[in-house]
Design a protein around this nucleic acid. Structure first.
Lengths: 130, 130
DNA sequence: TGCCTGAGTTACGTAAAAGTCAATTGCGTG
DNA sequence: CACGCAATTGACTTTTACGTAACTCAGGCA
């Protein structure tokens, strides 16, 4: 199955393991804009890609509002200089937020390592070979 | 001010920028267990450290329930072999979850870079020196 | 003694992000 | 054509993570 022109809503729910309600909710929130044939939604590859980014944002703990902001940044840059500079500033802010998250992540990973070491040591004390 | 024996609830709210309501809520949820003098809560350095970890979990987008699980892992390892092995397995699972988050993070950072490049390029086209 | 001040408890409220349910509607097919 | 099935819309519900009263209590101090 090569690159498809359209995906149905249920195809996407299966692929990304979300409900139809969720996809419609994201549409109400202005995150995705699938085209329509009659009333039924048709998702293009770009919509699918966008959904992937949205769900990634969710996994990172961003709210819908924050995700909406981030989506703006992925869009075509505006034509006006002031707007462009503003957008660059906001991109920098988001990047800083992500870097903070990365630090949190590394710290948490480090502490998990310590916790595991404790467990292994305890096992060794009990004479269990790992 | 060296290492203090106890911190009051308001001291912690100031240090970590959370409300007293939040701290009491976390206690209700079984995340922190400060000692008491009469009815007033006294937070030890270990409680303070734990709070730091809780808030880091929040920033990473974990729910209270997930944070509760993670806290279990930071605790003293259990004495029984089966429990120890179980805990190690769960630690590995959490680590995998964190690594997925790290991948998400790196991807998102990469796309922000692309978005910024687009903006810079657009600025260059408009003859603006950055 | 009267009054702050900081802390506590109980109870109710709320916003975000969906889940659930009911009532249609359109489409392909036997 | 009637049927079943997938989709749609709209209304209502739920869960999570606190916020917001409203009131009480103990200690210090003028």
């Amino acid at each position: 199955m090569a690159v498809r022109e359209f995906y149905s809503i249920t195809e996407l729910t299966r692929e990304f393991d979300v409900s139809t309600r969720t996809l419609r909710f994201y549409e109400d929130e202005g995150l995705i804009h699938p085209v329509r044939r009659g009333r039924t939604r048709l998702y293009r590859p770009a919509d699918r890609q966008l959904l992937r980014q949205i769900l990634r944002g969710k996994r990172l703990g961003f709210s819908i509002a924050e995700i909406r902001e981030i989506i703006q940044m992925y869009r075509e840059p505006p034509g006006e200089v002031g707007q462009l500079k503003l957008m660059i500033r906001r991109i920098d802010e988001k990047r800083e937020a992500l870097r903070q998250k990365r630090r949190d992540l590394e710290d948490a990973l480090g502490e998990l390592d310590l916790a595991e070491d404790n467990c292994l040591e305890r096992l060794a004390e009990l004479g269990v070979s790992t």
